[in-house]
Amino acid sequence: MITIDGLRKIFTTDQQDIKAVDDLNLSIKEGEIFGVIGYSGAGKSTFVRLLNRLEEPTSGSVVIDKQEITSLNTNELRLARQEIGMIFQHFNLLWSRTVKDNIAFPLEIAGVAKQEREARVQELIDLVGLSGREDAYPAQLSGGQKQRVGIARALANRPKVLLCDEATSALDPETTNSILDLLVDINQRLGLTIILITHEMHVIRKICHQVAVMENGKIVEQGDVLDVFLRPKQKVTRKFVEQVMGTPGEEESITELVEAYQEGKIVKLHFVGETANQALISQLARRFPIDINILQGKITQTQAGAYGTLFVQIVGDPAECSRALAHVADETSVEVEVIRDAE
């Protein structure tokens, strides 16, 4: 769907050249939600602007749906942009227009007839859940509502791709979640490819299928969200994973656990994209004559299922305990690591 090859952007200042995006290669599949994460200054904002040439690339190519964006002339680029939606951190709505007229704006640009425009606008207002606020001005809306207008506007011309430039960074956590839910909903309903950049791992975890980590203009790590969560290779990636999972500091706390709970086995359960056995603990307790005590842990949900670790204490007949653990290891994708066996 989207192929990026050797993409480079160098800003030339009097003192030095700044490589904002440095030899980037990516391939993004149709219908995917692709996240790019990085700290500010990593070049991710420049990267997303290179895709629709709001920034002109220094070199390299961007191909979206078989169309080479980087070789279009001004007029062709204008038409291509009508098929690439974009939403922004600060919404960028026209304050002088109502919700309805803001959403109609890209349709006016595309030369859609008035009647058709009105029907489409109403459809979009319903889609993003703003019914009843058609005639409000942006100043009368909350941040979340403004971003909904931004999304409706971006979708007006039925784009193939939606670019999200820090779309939730100006919103509070609760509103962020509702906007992310809306994006997932749109992705599933319309099969729209979404590229989003963010500095919040929470956003990646919640909605992305694929993630790329950017640092100093380069992609330093890339892959399935779960894989990256599970095996972060780079230091910067580990820091992002900790944003969601908390700092490990496991060594001390495990020793403490082992000392505090003298009885039974202490086991670490590692959930990696488990979707079928969400009720694992209660299933085990029902199936085997054992007691399970949850000691510590954190589980979080990603698009590919649950991810995280649990430390549990299992008390009961040693043979039953072993059978229970064998069951977990064989029947589910949860990884089992025995920290301390029963004496």
Binding site: L54, R78, L79, Q82, H90, N92, L94, I109, R153, L163
Partner: peptide
């Protein structure tokens, strides 16, 4: 005028006249 709004219009494929 907010530069972001101008940028948004560009991202929608607006002509300079628009």
């Amino acid at each position: 005028v907010d530069k972001g709004v101008v940028e948004a219009a560009k991202s929608m494929g607006a002509k300079t006249r628009t």
